[in-house]
Write a protein that binds this DNA or RNA. Structure first.
Length: 287
DNA sequence: AAGATCGCCTGCAGGC
DNA sequence: TGCCTGCAGGCGATCT
């Protein structure tokens, strides 16, 4: 499941393969993959035809390409299963190829997405959280790697919520880029039970949690940035290059690498949460 | 009005 | 063998 580090690897690959090239053809194979484009598929194609992709930007899990037209951008979101491939030939397309942009002089940009939670659309640019971003993602907060990210302010904002601290950490309107895997890893590093109300966690501990999230994503990025083929802009959530260093996520029934306690899996908002029952102990109700 | 829940979507693993 | 259920989870929409 692509979270910030995986998305950044894709962005960097796109920058390397496609930046500066001109879009010569647009092939939409799945209407669902362009559903976020408000003008419909024809409008999507019209907005991109003959445009040059100038550079590739990212905030959190969103990628966008700046175009010749300074007022619009091509937004790419990978969702759960999205990949972007650079292919010289249109033969041997992946089974789930959904949108293909042909570029000159560059490989074809193939957007592949098994589950179609992701997609592409063209959008107007507006100012938000210190940057020019596509309008449709103006509500997305800065991610921990942006210069504008203010860890003290974000921790303070988290503390104002009564929701489970994991829920707030996953809220892309508070801090972006963190998904289920890195949330559990950050909580493990900070020795926090995911279910604790954020309002019940100290400001210092919330800062520690945000620092841990940045650290674990930074390490994944360092490991992933060197490990993919030059022609294949890869995203692989489950079996990929970053799963080997996980301490809590997916380790149900294993001993905690830090204290030897038991890692358990619990239900959380219709998904999973992993924690150590010893060093991420659940507090008994106060008073 | 913040916070919780739902629906989207496909492939695969496991149980019977 | 084949059917069924659950699971994976990002994110916007829709409820309370």
């Amino acid at each position: 499941m692509p979270e910030l580090p995986e998305v950044e690897v894709v962005r960097a690959g796109m920058q390397r393969h496609f930046a500066g090239a001109r879009i010569t053809d647009i092939d939409i194979r799945a209407l669902r993959s362009v559903r976020r484009h408000l003008d419909g598929p024809q409008g999507f194609s019209a907005a991109l035809a003959d445009q040059r992709v100038v550079s590739f930007e990212r905030r959190g899990k969103f990628i966008w390409a700046l175009l010749d037209d300074p007022n619009t951008a091509l937004v790419v979101h990978l969702g759960m299963s999205g990949q972007v491939l650079a292919q010289r030939s249109l033969q041997n397309l992946p089974v789930h190829a959904r949108v293909i942009l042909s570029l000159k002089p560059a490989p074809h940009m193939v957007f592949s997405d098994q589950r179609m939670f992701g997609g592409m659309h063209v959008d107007a640019l507006i100012e938000s959280a210190g940057r020019l971003v596509p309008q449709s993602m103006a509500h997305i907060a800065a991610d921990p790697f942006e210069p504008v990210f203010d860890v003290v302010a974000v921790a303070a904002r988290m503390r104002r919520s009564n929701s489970a601290v994991k829920s707030v950490l996953l809220n892309q309107q508070v801090v972006s880029g963190i998904g289920n895997i890195y949330a559990d890893e950050a909580l493990w590093r900070a020795k926090l039970d995911w279910a604790r109300p954020a309002s019940n966690v100290s400001l210092a501990k919330l800062q520690e949690l945000l620092d841990a999230a940045k650290q674990v994503m930074g390490e994944a990025l360092a490991a992933g940035g060197t490990s993919f083929d030059s022609m294949y802009v890869n995203v692989n959530g489950s079996g990929g290059y970053f799963s080997r260093s996980l301490n809590a996520y997916g380790r149900e029934g294993e001993p905690c690498p830090r204290c030897g306690g038991a890692i358990i899996r619990e239900k959380f908002e219709n998904r999973s949460a992993f924690r150590c029952t010893r060093c991420q102990r659940r507090q008994t109700a106060p008073l």
